[in-house]
């Protein structure tokens, strides 16, 4: 699927719409988010004042656990240790950092490039270590997305906000005054129209 298949900024103020469009593009490229957003629609009315930001997301790969790139086994017989045999070295640094934080540097040994020994009770920790999440690309992307929308795109004065966030969509309704129900309804409506486009 293409990035930004729909990108509409609706605003009664034509110049405002143009600059808002360029500032959204700048922010998305600054935070390398352009691939994440599939369809995007913004409605802004400075007179009301309301700012609605609705987008359908295309998040990348799910989170990566130790078992996805390494074999986790019991260590040497009779010793309290877990042996992690790494198959893809790409995640080693992140894994080491996680283990150091969890067990302390003195309890982690790396006798070989691809072998990590964790000094802990294998019976207790083996399954937990297999499922340990080393990298969360989706969460990182969502963090950046919130940074982009809430801290950079929505006008700063619009401090009353309501948002929805899932792995498939994001919706922000913001205003300087108390949010009106019709704005929230409009937000849902915009989101629905994006979904209809997606499914068509």
């Amino acid at each position: 699927m293409e990035q930004l298949e729909t990108f509409i900024v609706e605003c009664p103020d034509a110049t405002g719409a143009k600059t808002t469009r360029s500032l959204i593009l700048d922010t998305l490229s600054d935070l390398s988010l352009s691939r994440v957003i599939g369809r995007l629609k913004v409605y802004m009315d400075p007179v009301e004042p309301v700012f609605i930001f609705a987008a359908l997301l295309r998040l990348g790969s799910p989170s990566i656990k130790i078992k996805d790139f390494a074999r986790v086994d019991m260590g040497a017989l009779g010793k309290d240790e877990v042996k992690i045999e790494i198959e893809k070295e790409m995640f080693t640094i992140k894994l080491l950092n996680k283990l150091w934080a969890k067990y302390g540097k003195e309890n982690i040994e790396q006798p070989d490039r691809k072998i990590i020994i964790v000094k802990t009770d294998p019976i207790k920790d083996l399954d937990m270590l297999r499922e340990l999440v080393v990298e969360e690309p989706q969460q990182e992307v969502l963090d950046r997305l919130i940074d982009a929308i809430a801290l950079r795109i929505i006008p700063e004065g619009f401090r009353v906000r309501k948002h929805e966030l899932s792995s498939t969509h994001v919706l922000f309704v913001a205003s300087e005054d108390t949010l009106k129900p019709e704005w929230l309804a409009k937000g849902q409506e915009i989101l629905e129209s994006l979904r209809r486009e997606e499914n068509a």
Binding site: G16, T20, V47
Partner: peptide, 15 residues
């Protein structure tokens, strides 16, 4: 205390 103040405002005419 300055000689001129430059206010850098935003995108919308109404605002």
């Amino acid at each position: 205390e300055h000689d001129v103040a430059v206010f850098i405002l935003g995108n919308y005419e109404h605002c």
